[in-house]
Design a protein around this nucleic acid. Structure first.
Lengths: 388, 388
DNA sequence: CTGTTAGCGCCTTCAT
DNA sequence: ATGAAGGCGCTAACAG
């Protein structure tokens, strides 16, 4: 059952000799490539079993000019969403018979050396969940026919397929939900543009766009809060700033007279005076932090404001948070990523694909049920949006 | 700068020709192994640069009978502690010039095929953060001189080094802290023994042992709560059960007359009647769940009971939890794991090492500051413990 | 269906 | 210090 007590690993040669066949026969039975008689196959298998033979993947890969490795690049694994995504990705990769090569990078610069390392191992594919693949490198991958797929990020590069959540629609759903609930002073919390991810940008755009009409009629007001990073602490500090700023506004009138055209909405006074009552956060970490920051100032959702976050991470479901969130379908993202890889392996020349995975609005404690809403018109928008 | 437009990857041969030297010269400059004249070295480097040459790691590894890969096996990456550990591990691995091969397993059974796959790639080392490596496989690794290190788990196997947190002391610190705070009905929440991890078992033992004296004198009482899995939900359900059980105890007297020898402690009545006032949870997920479960029943820490968890995961620091925890030094765990790997690479025959990393008690909101304690005697124990 | 042959790209003696 | 030669373990194309 186990290999003989040699200190040298068992090779196909050893198996061949023991089975009384040639190396090729062994090779064929294990790569079930060429045809091999049932009898010899069994002999080989038996000998292999007895010797404890294991294919040397390095040799095999080198020969095939391609390994069964798939490179995955991530960042900030301590972010629950990212680790969940990685987890699912690993499962898909393993299930498809590959082995994951994973690298964590801290900055865009590290992406290039990472990809280079991947190609040195002749990986069968690369999955990028962070950073912008440098075009030069991607070109090299394309030339080597190594499929590259990017998750949740823009990439104009022709060679790489994209799998992403429908961040725009998600953000629009959040916007409409808040409108439908009658919020009139919305805020959204996102990381500063310089540090933002592509997802963050898409969500911001989606949110703002869904609000365009209401903003035009001055029905509502929108405050934009930025954070340094996409973390809990970032969200918390945003809440601090909001609270202090509102406090300041209460005591001193802010001379915001840049707009020459006075708002003529009937809501004018209400809108101008109202403190923030509906908040959208770019991700779950920020949302939790924001909620806690507000709580520290004696305000809570949904009592004092409503709150919707992105990414249905485990902690948002916790009793002490019960955040309403937009849930990304991680399973689907992972599945499609692998599917793209496999498709492009078959046809390396196929045009770039962009797979969009829809997002689900999960209403929990921090925002009310739409059926109890005060503004049915926006509710309609919201429902339409959901079925897009 | 980039390679010529061949569809074939650049080989050392190509570089050699362009530089006007032999393949060996190229090999030597890149593996800086043999000695090579400065002049030729530069010629080679230049040619390599121009051609965009990259060492083929597969070929290199195959030749050296060893790759620059390090296998890492994990489970339940969605658990914040595990993903943080993986993150640090990856950083260490990369910094040491290796590339991580990571596999997620869902059950012990998957460990064997995983290790086997690792050996097929002739990894330079294996880090196991989950499961019990089967002795047979480990023996194979030892024979192939592949270092194996296990993190936070017991392994009697001679070949594998162990890096672990001092779970026992940590649990004892928790126990003494609770005693010092004057708790007299302690409880600990852990996963059922059948599903427990080695860390969980060590923590349970440490906790119980530190309580031995107080239990012997009937000064305190200890309730053991078990959960199905080491999850938030598990902790929450444990809290449910506790609450319902205590409710039951209040309305009906439970005929617990198994003990023939009546307790003679002066605390007798107090101890017997007192509901749980000090809780220790085997990990952070459970602790958060437990706290929330209690909150759902209108009880909160530190008002109604004190709570200490293990693993200082980010969420335990959140404002809405502020759990007191035992903090594992993840950096140190990762660092030592890699150090062990490297040491054993140098000396494959060295005796098994067990590296213990000390743990820190972080007092936050769910348990009081020791300097405001009511029972200085136990405080002394605790302080001694901390400096062990 | 099977064995033989010729590499895959690199490292490592071994002479020079 | 350098080049030539042999081999790492496997696969693939070719005869038989």
């Amino acid at each position: 059952m186990s290999q003989s007590s040699l200190h040298r690993p068992v090779t196909a040669q050893d198996v061949a000799e023991r089975a009384g066949v040639s190396r090729s026969a062994v090779s064929r039975t294990f790569s079930n490539n060429g045809s091999v008689a049932q009898a010899t196959r069994e002999k080989v298998l038996k000998a292999a079993e007895e010797l404890g033979y294991q294919v040397n993947m390095l040799a095999q890969s080198m020969n095939k000019q391609r390994s069964t490795l798939i490179g995955v690049v991530t960042t900030r694994l301590s972010d629950p969403f990212r680790s969940e995504l990685l987890e699912r990705l690993l499962q898909e990769i393993q299930q498809a018979g590959f082995q994951a090569l994973v690298t964590e990078i801290n900055s865009e610069d590290e992406l290039e050396p990472t990809l280079r390392r991947f190609t040195q191992f002749r990986v069968s594919g690369v999955i990028v969940t962070s950073g912008q693949p440098p075009s030069e490198l991607v070109a090299e991958c394309v030339r080597m026919k190594i499929p590259v797929v990017a998750i949740n990020r823009e990439s104009a590069l022709a060679g790489v397929d994209i799998v992403k959540s429908d961040n725009r629609s998600g953000a629009a759903m959040a916007a409409n939900q808040l409108l439908a609930a009658g919020c009139c002073h919305l805020a959204w919390v996102n990381v500063a543009p310089t540090a933002s991810t592509w997802s963050g940008i898409a969500r911001a755009e989606g949110f703002r766009q869904a609000l365009n009409d209401s903003l035009a009629t001055n029905e509502i007001r929108l405050t934009e809060l930025t954070t340094e990073d996409a973390s809990y602490e970032g969200g918390r500090l945003a809440a601090y700033r909001l609270c202090h700023q509102e406090f300041a506004n209460d005591s001193t009138s802010n001379p915001d007279s840049k707009s020459s055209k006075k708002p003529d909405s009937i809501h004018k006074n209400k809108v101008e005076q109202q403190s923030v009552d509906g908040v959208f956060c770019a991700n779950a970490q920020i949302a939790c932090g924001f909620l806690d920051g507000m709580r520290e100032h004696g305000k809570d959702a949904p009592k004092d404001f409503q709150l919707i976050g992105f990414d249905d991470t485990p902690q948002t479901r916790f009793y002490s948070y019960q955040l309403s969130t937009l849930k990304q379908n991680i399973d689907e993202l992972a599945r499609k990523a692998l599917h793209c890889l496999q498709q492009r392996t078959k046809d390396p020349e196929r045009p770039q694909r962009v797979e969009s995975v829809s997002v689900e609005l999960l209403l929990r404690n921090t925002s009310p049920n739409p059926y109890q809403t005060r503004n049915p018109q926006h509710l309609d928008n919201m429902l339409k949006q959901q079925h897009m």
